[in-house]
């Protein structure tokens, strides 16, 4: 108390030399700023200490002792539980070992399976290639056949043209052809009915040759 008293006196001495702005408006609940000294009216106020009866204190101490003991036991239990699940424990190490062996076994199984499937794939591919070859040869055959047919057609056309060749007017036969045409005049100035009967106008002199 004496110490408090002396401190406050010192504070008072100091604070008299410094001016503080005590803000007029403060938000509720009003509270002094941290750098402000206690209000002059509160310099020597000592807040009452909480009075705890001795009996109650003893009871609390007893209860706390029990609680702490129980809590420590529980914490130890949880700690053991936690350690069981971590890598440090033996059970987990065994489990890890089991997992590793299982992994190896599974990898081997996988390899075997892959080999089996590879063999099947190989056979299938062989079959597929044979089929493809077959198809190719067939296509080749059909193509050659097609070419032959085309050639035949062209040959026929050439033969036909050659036959027609005898009637063509060439430079040698031109004179005779003209004479022949002049000898045999043809008139196209006629009408024709649905039955194919040709009507010629005999009275009219044709202008066409």
């Amino acid at each position: 108390m004496l110490e408090n008293f002396t401190n406050f006196r010192l504070l008072r001495q100091i604070t008299r030399q410094i001016q503080f702005i005590r803000y007029k408006k403060r938000p509720t609940p009003a509270r002094k700023n941290i750098w402000e000294p206690p209000a002059p009216s509160k310099y020597f106020r000592i807040s009452p200490r909480p009075v705890i009866p001795v009996k109650e204190q003893e009871e609390l101490k007893h209860l706390y002792d029990i609680y702490r003991t129980h809590f420590r036991a529980l914490r130890h239990f949880f700690q053991c539980e936690y350690e069981k699940t971590t890598r440090l424990s033996i059970a987990v190490a065994e489990k890890m070992k089991e997992e590793v062996s299982e992994h190896a076994y599974l990898m081997e199984q996988n390899k075997l399976e892959n080999e089996r499937v590879a063999e099947i794939r190989k056979a299938r591919r062989k079959c597929d290639m044979a089929k493809l070859d077959d198809e190719l040869s067939q296509a080749e055959q059909s193509l050659s056949q097609l070419i032959q047919e085309e050639r035949k057609k062209l040959d026929e056309l050439v033969l036909k043209e050659k036959k027609m060749n005898s009637t063509y007017i060439t430079s040698q036969t031109l004179e005779t052809a003209i004479e022949d045409a002049l000898d045999n005049l043809t008139t196209y100035d006629f009408a024709i009915d649905l039955n194919g009967v040709i009507y010629r106008d005999d009275k009219k002199e044709s202008t066409y040759i």
Binding site: E56, L60, L63, Y64, I66, Y67, H70, F71, L74
Partner: peptide
């Protein structure tokens, strides 16, 4: 979950 805390007892009494 845990034993009852002494403060709970204190508040109660």
């Amino acid at each position: 979950f845990l034993p009852i805390h002494p403060l709970s007892y204190m508040k109660a009494w």
